[in-house]
Design a protein around this nucleic acid. Sequence first.
DNA 1: CACACGTTATATCGAATCGATATATAGACT
DNA 2: AGTCTATATATCGATTCGATATAACGTGTG
Lengths: 188, 188
Amino acid sequence: MDVKTLCLGVLTLGEASGYEIKKQFEEGPFSYFYDAGYGSIYPALGKLLAEGLVDCTETAQERRPAKKVYTITPAGEAVFREALHQRPARDRIRSEYMVMFFFAQLLDEDHLRSVFEEYLTQFRRAAEHVRGLDSTGIPPGRLFARGFGRAFFEAAARYMEENRHLLFDGDAEDEETPDNEPMTGTDR
Amino acid sequence: MDVKTLCLGVLTLGEASGYEIKKQFEEGPFSYFYDAGYGSIYPALGKLLAEGLVDCTETAQERRPAKKVYTITPAGEAVFREALHQRPARDRIRSEYMVMFFFAQLLDEDHLRSVFEEYLTQFRRAAEHVRGLDSTGIPPGRLFARGFGRAFFEAAARYMEENRHLLFDGDAEDEETPDNEPMTGTDR
DNA sequence: CACACGTTATATCGAATCGATATATAGACT
DNA sequence: AGTCTATATATCGATTCGATATAACGTGTG
């Protein structure tokens, strides 16, 4: 499943420009599990247009360059539906933050600390953001994906809070000293 | 941080062939947060060798093609340490499974169900695998990364078990009815 | 008020990466 | 005998990344 296919998917939710598609990958409902840059999106839209899978309406603006709004065609919808029935490739993740934690012993404490705080803040903010979303009238599949994102963000933030001592052992900060044992052992 | 840098990182843990490096990304300690294919690894090792950041010992085997074992040089270690102090890029994730759940309404129930079970099984197995690892003598950074992976796998499996009704509402199957309450509600 | 900065918006391009494939041997299973 | 899996290196076209260029407008600030 390539960026072309994903653009079709975004367009099934409604018309959009290349810029708006990018935003959906960055901040929108796809941000929990997909990403793509302009260098992939614009060529993809060009190819989709050439194949008749999308239409393009050039909205001429007064003092701006024309905004190109793309709409999916029935043919595009069919192609997308078919693509969804392929076997999914396995997940691809790439976290440089984790690489740094893994090699924590090679890092300056200052750097490690700032990277850690930044990452934790990211997860907290993301979790908070999802929590604030309105869920009324959202199709169940989208709710499932969103909830998965939330579960991940919260689990990540929680893990980082509870295990920071592994990276910064000289800290000795108690914060809340929760009711459960330090190590969860074999839960479940 | 590119594949070249990550290969250096793998080699700080000990000598390895290109094949073995791939395995470390696939099943080893890096599998929780990084991935790379042969098409990236072999060229990367070639460049690292040309730059003097790794050495290569060709272990001739009897009836096999020569196995090339790479070792990191002091220069390589220095370069790697420096790379670790760059600002990390933000995480890149790409999950076709999640794309399918997001568009669940467009999928055949059979397909959705098999994709769902496969994904859940992946997480269960991965969590179980991490749980079975020996933690004695592992540097804290590596433990932190491993624990993060475990936390993610467990949270993912748990979320899928508890929210499958969002994708399959007609089911009403209890599976095992575990010892804890049916719905966890607001955990914590 | 000028100037820097952020946002909207399209687009390109070289470098990096992906994914599939080719080659070859050995062992294990059918 | 034939198939499958694992070890092991390597390439190659297609895809994707990441940085950059262009341009207009709004916003905040010294």
